[in-house]
């Protein structure tokens, strides 16, 4: 699995397509925290809303960085679609974790409000819920399920817009609502985290099923 992650990761790094979402992420974080970003948890809600589409974008980049023909070699070498798609999901989740840590730690250093350890834990959990949910959407809406870039882009945009409109009825909406209203339940966040990880697993299983049929 490690070797597979390195192969896929090297391809993503060489493609440089990760740069656009990474720069967008850093730029918006910079704007959010350039001055007083306000109270701790509502400020986290801003970057949580950001990591959701960025997570989807990263997932699309990571799952499509490899050429489709090279992907068939990788799949055969690794021993099946399941392993490669699981590695793609793992690599995406690891990248989202890195982005979540940045967004959670940055305001502790820059925002002139007192941060408790509990706040930081809540922030990290909420970022992971939103980031993993976005990543799951990105994986479900790109190769091998959707092979056309334009359709992937439209579908991801639609999912992000609908999620923001749907309010508390989605994991992302609920996490954002809890932060915005400073009414956080850690067990609820852990439940949402488990749900978002389950969505990633669904994306792997669905991707494998579709790839084998193609």
């Amino acid at each position: 699995m490690i070797a597979l992650l390195r192969l896929l990761g090297a391809d993503v790094l060489r493609s440089q397509r990760y740069l656009a979402p990474a720069l967008l992420y850093c730029a918006v974080l910079g704007m959010l925290y350039s001055g007083d970003a306000g109270t701790v948890l509502p400020a986290y809600a801003g970057s949580c809303a950001l990591i959701f589409p960025v997570g989807a974008w990263l997932a699309v980049v990571i799952s499509t960085a490899e050429d489709p023909v090279l992907r068939t070699i990788t799949v055969v070498t690794a021993g099946g679609w399941g392993r490669v798609l699981a590695a793609v999901a793992t690599l995406t989740a690891a990248t989202v974790l890195l982005f979540a840590i940045v967004a959670t730690a940055l305001p502790v250093l820059t925002n002139p409000h007192p941060y408790t350890l509990a706040d930081v834990r809540t922030g990290l959990l909420a970022h992971l819920v939103c980031g993993f949910s976005g990543a799951a959407a990105g994986l479900l809406l790109s190769r091998p399920l959707i092979t056309r870039t334009g359709v992937t882009l439209l579908a991801c945009t639609a999912v992000v817009v609908v999620t923001f409109l749907a309010g508390r009825s989605t994991p992302v909406g609920l996490a954002l609502w809890m932060l915005g209203h400073q009414d956080v339940s850690v067990p609820a966040l852990l439940g949402l985290l488990a749900l978002s990880v389950a969505l990633l697993a669904v994306a792997v299983v669905a991707g494998r099923a579709v790839a084998l049929r193609r």
Partner: peptide, 19 residues
């Protein structure tokens, strides 16, 4: 074999052997 593969021969073969 696709065109436009950015990896070098050495890296590509080493990565696949490791997989």
């Amino acid at each position: 074999f696709p065109e436009g593969v950015r990896a070098s021969t050495r890296d590509y073969l080493r990565h696949l052997a490791a997989v």
